[in-house]
C-alpha cells in the first residue's frame, strides 16, 4: 500500500456556511487520501455534504478550515491563473448533463476547446479532427453525426458520453464525477460506468465518484468512503465496507437498499404462497 502515490489528500477539511447561531457545518473535519489510479466512491444520503466536498476539491468554494494537498504539495489556487493551471489536472462531470453545456456553442467547439486547453492550439486541423474522432469513438458516438449540432439536440445519455469524450481529450489527473448517472436510465447507466472504468484503465486517472446508490458504488469502486452529516463515518475497500459494514449508519443504508437476494422484511417475496383451499361444492 505504501508505494502507491497519494494524488489528493486532505487533513481536517471543514466547510461552514453562515455564522453565529445560523451556522451550518456542511463538511466537518474530514481526512482523506486518494491514491493515483484509484476509483473512489463517496456515498451518502442527500444533505451529507458530498457535493460540498467535491466543490471544495474543485476549488469552486473556499475551504473554511484544514488543508488540501495536491500531488504532495499544498494546493495553491489563490489567483485566477493558478486556478486555471489547477483545472488542467482536475476536471468534473456533473449530475445534470442538460445544464453542463454552453447552449450557444456547437459540439465541435466544445471538443476543440479541450484540445486548445491541452496546448494543441497550433496543431494542424486534420490532426485536431483525428483527435476528436478518436474521442468520439471512445464513447461510442459518431463524430460525423456530431458536427454542426448543438448539445441540446442530443439525449441525456449522449450528452453525458460527450462529457466523457471531453475528459478523454483533456486527460486530467483527477476526475470528479458527481452522480453522473442519476438522471439517466439503468440501461445507459451501464454504458457510462463501463466507459469510466475503461478511461481509468487506459489513462490511469484517479476517479472520485459521488453517488447515493450502494449497488453502483460496490460495482465500480476500489475504495468506498461513507459520509454522514458532513463526517466520514467509514472507509475502506469496497468489499470490506459493503459486505462487512462496521458503522451503524452504513448498516442502516445497506438495509434500506432494495436487493434481489435478500428482499425487505415486508416484501411479498418473503411470503410463502397461501395454501390452496379446495373450492367447496
Amino acid at each position: 500500500m505504501s508505494e502507491r502515490e497519494i494524488c489528493l489528500s486532505g487533513t481536517g477539511v471543514s466547510k461552514v456556511f453562515g455564522f453565529g447561531n445560523r451556522k451550518t457545518v456542511a463538511v466537518d473535519n474530514v481526512d482523506f487520501n486518494f491514491y493515483s489510479g484509484e476509483l473512489v466512491s463517496i456515498v451518502g444520503e442527500s444533505g451529507s455534504g458530498k457535493t460540498t466536498l467535491i466543490k471544495m476539491l474543485l476549488g469552486l468554494t473556499s475551504v473554511t478550515e484544514g488543508e488540501i494537498q495536491f500531488l504532495g504539495k499544498k494546493r495553491d489556487i489563490r489567483t485566477r491563473s493558478k486556478k486555471k493551471e489547477y483545472w488542467k489536472d482536475i476536471q468534473a462531470i456533473f449530475q445534470d448533463p442538460f445544464s453542463s453545456y454552453n447552449i450557444f456553442s456547437k459540439i465541435d467547439s466544445v471538443l476543440l476547446d479541450c484540445i486548445h486547453m491541452r496546448g494543441g492550439r497550433m496543431l494542424p486541423k486534420a490532426k485536431k479532427i483525428e483527435m476528436m474522432e478518436e474521442a468520439c469513438r471512445f464513447v461510442n458516438l459518431k463524430y460525423a453525426e456530431m458536427t454542426n449540432k448543438y448539445p441540446f439536440e442530443l439525449s441525456g445519455g449522449q450528452m453525458q458520453r460527450l462529457m466523457i469524450a471531453r475528459i478523454f481529450l483533456l486527460r486530467p489527473k483527477i476526475l470528479l464525477a458527481d452522480e453522473p448517472t442519476s438522471m439517466i436510465d439503468a440501461c445507459s447507466r451501464a454504458t457510462i460506468l463501463d466507459m469510466l472504468l475503461n478511461l481509468r484503465n487506459e489513462t490511469g486517472m484517479t476517479i472520485i465518484f459521488i453517488t447515493h446508490d450502494m449497488g453502483l458504488a460496490y460495482y465500480i469502486s476500489d475504495t468506498v468512503y461513507i459520509m454522514e452529516r458532513g463526517k466520514i463515518v467509514e472507509f475502506g475497500s469496497a468489499d470490506e465496507v459493503i459486505l462487512n459494514p462496521q458503522a451503524d449508519y452504513t448498516k442502516r443504508l445497506l438495509s434500506d437498499v432494495p436487493k434481489i437476494h435478500e428482499p425487505w422484511e415486508f416484501s411479498k417475496r418473503n411470503q410463502t404462497p397461501p395454501p390452496q383451499t379446495p373450492v367447496e361444492a
Binding site: D213, A217, H261
Partner: peptide, 8 residues
C-alpha cells in the same frame, strides 16, 4: 443485465 445491487 444492468441490475446493480450491493450483494456478495
Amino acid at each position: 443485465g444492468s441490475i446493480l445491487v450491493p450483494e456478495d
